[in-house]
Design a protein around this nucleic acid. Structure first.
Length: 493
RNA sequence: CGGGGUGUAGCGUAGCCCGGUUAGCGCGCCAGCAUGGGGUGCUGGAGGUCGGAGGUUCGAAUCCUCUCACCCCGACCA
């Protein structure tokens, strides 16, 4: 393990890169901008998927799968949608290779596709093209579908998990009979994301609505959850879009209502991606490495034996087997590492770096005293516990760690949300105390754009839940014009 | 995609400006012995042709050209 490990204060982005690569979450692939998600990292992603998938099912959704390749013509059907994605699409133009003159493989120019195919940057078009055949009557509605998939967006500047050319995500695509119902769905799924972020990832989020500038291409409204990273920057952790009838019109998806009238259906789409992995790392980890919330940790407890003789080890093995069984019966994920090839201290450091929430060490002294040493990753505290009732104690500790991580992140965030009333103050705050800023804005795209150009800060969202004092009228920090309420500004990932 | 930087063994690096012995070091790896409650010590050993291609030269990690990847800044974006 690297001992020349950058701290957050020294170099935040280097620190992030080191955690991701050295904790075995992911590494760069041979393809530019793409990553290999390694087993340890993928295991965390699987935990996320499982939790989210259950939440989607619990809210009535079903999974399906749509193609990776989308006919180019589909993209031109919704004007703002094309515009939003045109610059970052990978295009498939041929379907065959052949041997070149010098023995290399070349594209067979004769095998040109009649219509080029786009590797999906998102699936609205292919899905709505399909929905046309599925929806005729109000009885077919609502249609509540989710898909787990990969998408490709040809990014100019990439970072592991935060922005890669290919990433994994889920995209929900629903169709409804009324606008009202679709808006409710949009809000419901935003709620699911917030719930997941806070209760599984232990990352507090602010729910809000995007301004027109930041809205998804093709949406009437985009809702989001915004999380604060330890450097004070915002990370959009999930989005939920109310698409109105834009895609229904573009793909001619109509239904007959109870009253026998024809109308276009109302749509939503919503998604979270492997970017959540980046959020997870940047929300909790410290200068000793990764810190994982118990609910998403591939293993929640690691047990390390300490012994001199083979005889000691055998005794410990037997004892640990009891402990392991009792923990497993509580649904706790346990790893027992009794490899003789690494020493205890090495293992301690290793599992700390990988963010395992709890470590149990058990040696001859413990065997004599009926105790174990338990170390928490979040606080780095150690205590000696009686083995009696250990499973309950561990279960309790894990839930404490989960809570503690959330509380820590929450108080960090709240300490770094500031209200400012002048542009000078705004710039000064961005400079000296990076974090979220609640400030008045006149509601125009021009002002938003100007502020962005001059300070790099953007309006992350118009919070859905705000304190009384933040929804009172005021004066725009930039233009001096009247403002209805404060909105949330920040530098962002 | 524009500007700047980096690329030497699995990782971290020295050497490069001022071309010239088998490219050095630390960690890790392998073997043995000792050790064993926070990255164990000693001894011995293996591993790199210097991101890739081309060029200059008697000779290139070192100079030149092109290219690829990564990092930082900018534009764009989840």
């Amino acid at each position: 393990m690297s001992k020349e490990f950058a701290t957050r204060a020294e170099n935040y982005s280097e620190w992030y890169n080191h955690i991701v690569t050295k904790a075995d979450l992911a590494e760069h692939a041979a393809v530019k901008g793409c990553m290999v998600i390694k087993p340890y990292g993928y295991s965390i992603w699987e935990k996320m998927q499982q939790a989210l998938d259950q939440m989607f099912k619990d809210t009535g959704h079903e999974n399906a799968y749509f193609p990776l390749l989308i006919p180019k013509s589909f993209f031109s059907k919704e004007a703002s949608h094309v515009e939003g994605f045109a610059k970052e699409c990978a295009v498939v133009t041929h379907y065959r290779l052949k041997n070149g003159p010098d023995g290399t493989v070349i594209v067979d120019e004769e095998a040109k596709l009649a219509e080029e195919l786009i590797i999906r940057p998102t699936s609205e078009t292919i899905i709505w093209n399909t929905y046309k055949g599925w929806i005729q009557s109000y009885r077919d509605l609502p249609l509540l579908i989710n898909q787990w998939a990969n998408v490709v967006r040809w990014e100019m500047r990439t970072r592991l998990f935060l922005r890669t050319a290919e990433f994994l995500w889920q995209e929900g695509h629903t169709a409804h009979a009324t606008s009202q119902e679709a808006i409710e769905e949009t809000e419901r799924m935003l709620g699911v994301y917030a719930d997941f972020a806070e209760n599984w990832m232990a990352v507090p989020v602010i729910k809000g609505k995007k301004t027109a500038n930041e809205r998804f291409a093709g949406a009437l409204d985009t809702y989001c959850i915004e999380a604060m990273m330890q450097d004070g920057k915002a990370l959009q952790a999930g989005t939920s879009h109310f698409l109105g009838q834009n895609f229904a019109k573009a793909f001619d998806v109509k239904f007959t209502s109870k009253e026998g009238k024809q109308d276009y259906v109302w749509a939503t789409s919503w998604g979270v991606s492997t970017r959540l992995m980046g959020a997870l790392v940047m929300a909790h980890s410290d200068d000793q490495g990764l810190v994982l919330p118990p609910k998403l940790a591939p293993f929640q407890v690691v047990i390390v034996p300490i012994y001199k003789t083979e005889e000691d080890l055998l005794k410990i093995n037997a004892k640990v087997e009891e402990i392991r069984k009792s923990l497993i019966s509580k649904g706790i994920r346990v790893k027992y590492d009794n490899r003789d090839t690494q020493r205890p201290g090495w293992k301690f450091a290793e599992y700390e770096f990988k963010g395992v929430p709890l470590r149990i060490a058990i040696g001859p002294k413990d065997m004599e005293n009926g105790t174990v040493e338990v170390a928490r990753r979040d606080t780095r505290e150690k205590e000696v516990l009686q083995m009696v009732d250990l499973d309950n104690k561990i279960e309790h500790l894990l839930s404490q760690i989960q809570d503690n991580l959330f509380q820590k992140a929450l108080s960090f965030r709240d300490q770094n949300i500031r209200r400012v009333d002048t542009y000078d103050e705004f710039k000064k705050t961005l400079n000296e105390n990076p974090g979220f800023i609640l400030a008045h804005w006149d509601g125009t795209a021009e002002t938003e754009q100007k502020i962005k150009e001059e300070t790099k800060a953007t309006i992350r969202c118009i919070p859905l839940q705000a304190e009384e004092r933040d929804v009172k009228p005021g004066i725009c920090i930039y233009s001096g014009k009247p403002s209805e309420r404060r909105v949330l500004f920040s530098l962002a990932y």
